[in-house]
């Protein structure tokens, strides 16, 4: 596929990816009772988007989807979290090469490695970056934002570990190896 074509694909994947993220956030987020935190199915979709279309599409799609969702539910986006979410998308996208999901072969080892990676990424994002941003920008009490951060870290990692992993496996199954499709009698 030519490069120009791929860039169009990235634009479309960003746009439609963001639309999916928006719809998932809006309709199937399961609230946990701690404000701002929910089991987010959209987070589980992110690794797949990232594995297929790479860091730019995943990062931007999350950024756009999340800010739109904030816009229409809370009136204005909570920028620190929106940005961190975008960065998590970028980080997942950086793992695209290693996963190489288009090959259709995705071994258990690769999946374990990816899960370790995502837990670390989520930790950096939700326990280190987001709360620090909240303290710096919004001046909220540290204990509150760190608790929110830790809960979000756990929930998002779980969401990626369960939903994300299953989606990766199922998608890989739909990829066909070169020259493999033959009619069977």
């Amino acid at each position: 596929m030519s490069n120009k074509n791929r860039s169009v694909q990235t634009v479309v994947a960003t746009g439609i990816g963001a639309a999916i993220i928006f719809v998932l956030m809006k309709f199937i987020a399961i609230p946990t009772g701690i404000s701002n935190t929910q089991v987010n199915v959209a987070e589980g979709f992110l690794p797949l988007l990232a594995a297929i279309y790479g860091p730019v599409a995943a990062g931007l799609a999350m950024f756009i989807g999340h800010s739109l969702n904030d816009f229409v539910t809370y009136g204005s986006p909570w920028w620190t979290w929106v940005i961190v979410d975008g960065l998590v998308g970028v980080a997942f996208g950086l793992f695209k090469r290693q996963l190489d999901i288009q090959s259709g072969k995705i071994s258990a080892a690769k999946l374990v490695l990816f899960n370790v990676y995502q837990i670390v990424v989520n930790f950096i994002g939700w326990v280190l970056l987001a709360p620090t941003g909240d303290i710096l920008i919004y001046h909220e009490p540290a204990s509150k934002v760190y608790l929110q951060g830790v809960v979000t870290w756990l929930l998002n990692s779980a969401s990626v570990a369960i939903i994300g992993t299953i989606l990766l496996i199922l998608y890989a199954k739909t990829r066909t190896k070169r020259g493999s499709l033959k009619k069977e009698k």
């Binding site: 199954k173 739909t174 990829r175 066909t176 499709l181 009619k183 069977e184 009698k185």
Partner: peptide, 10 residues
């Protein structure tokens, strides 16, 4: 029947 093991995407 001949395509029963094909991925639906094809």
């Amino acid at each position: 029947y001949e395509m029963r093991h094909w991925p639906i995407s094809a």
